[in-house]
């Protein structure tokens, strides 16, 4: 019963995603911004004093904005003009509806970001003289896919909690662009556990903080899960 009712809900959410230009646009912006900014950064460095893997994956800092925009707009449309009521009238089981919604946030980002990561790694590996090793490049590609997926889910969860895309973007984007930047290279402090700092360790050749590549992603995943649980709770408790 449960699985048989989930497939139609999933199909519906996929139709809703692919029929919105803003959604397709945000998805396309993930590879475009990531690859473009990575290439731009690579062309401006001599590759000696910086982290070779992060130089190659520099564009992820910008690609994550697109991933966040995708996760936010997928949910924010539901909180306008009673759209959620139409959605929940067709799929009254709120957990099932939310799971379907999150699946069409996560899966497209995962696929697109993995392709983006592989292209970025290939471009970075081709760079003389000291690009990342193939093993590092593969880790970066996988990390890029998982990290961007987690950021899209974090944004989707936060939008469900706040019931507003504008509110979500005005928290997340300044947070990612300013707070992390201001905290800069200060490592070995609690800032390492912020979702973006933790999640981006996987994009570095070397690290000296408390978190490694995979533990960092695990911390980012905890943030995303917390936002999603808060969103699910809000969705379950509140009148639609």
């Amino acid at each position: 019963m449960r699985t048989s009712s989930f497939t139609p809900a999933l199909h519906t959410e996929w139709i809703k995603t692919r029929t919105l230009r803003s959604q397709i646009g945000a998805l396309c912006a993930i590879p475009l911004t990531t690859v473009a900014f990575s290439a731009l950064a690579a062309s401006g460095t001599d590759g000696t004093d910086s982290d070779p893997l992060f130089s190659a994956f520099f564009g992820v800092s910008f690609g994550q904005i697109a991933a966040i925009a995708f996760g936010t707009t997928a949910v924010s449309g539901e909180f306008r003009n009673g759209a959620l009521r139409v959605s929940l009238a067709s799929v009254p089981h709120r957990g099932r509806w939310f799971a379907a919604k999150l699946a069409v946030v996560a899966l497209p980002v995962l696929v697109v970001a993995l392709a983006t990561g592989l292209v970025t790694a290939a471009l970075g590996g081709a760079l003389p003289p000291s690009g990342p090793s193939p093993a590092q490049g593969l880790r970066g590609a996988l990390g890029c896919a998982v990290y961007l997926t987690l950021m899209a889910l974090l944004a989707a969860g936060l939008t469900t909690v706040l019931r507003s895309g504008v509110a979500t973007l005005s928290i997340l984007i300044p947070f990612l662009l300013i707070v992390s930047f201001v905290l800069g290279d200060l490592s070995g402090n609690p800032a390492d556990f912020l979702p973006d700092r933790a999640g981006q360790v996987v994009l570095h050749s070397t690290w000296d903080g408390a978190l490694g590549p995979w533990t960092g992603l695990a911390v980012a995943a905890l943030w995303a899960v917390a936002a999603l649980l808060a969103g699910a709770w809000r969705l379950h408790r509140r009148d639609a």
């Binding site: 809703k16 449309g77 139409v86 799929v91």
Partner: peptide
């Protein structure tokens, strides 16, 4: 007003039908 402005009328109904 519940239908998303950026979607076509047909796509709005199609998504509902599939669910």
């Amino acid at each position: 007003q519940a239908a998303h402005g950026s979607r076509t009328g047909r796509d709005h109904l199609l998504a509902l039908a599939v669910s």
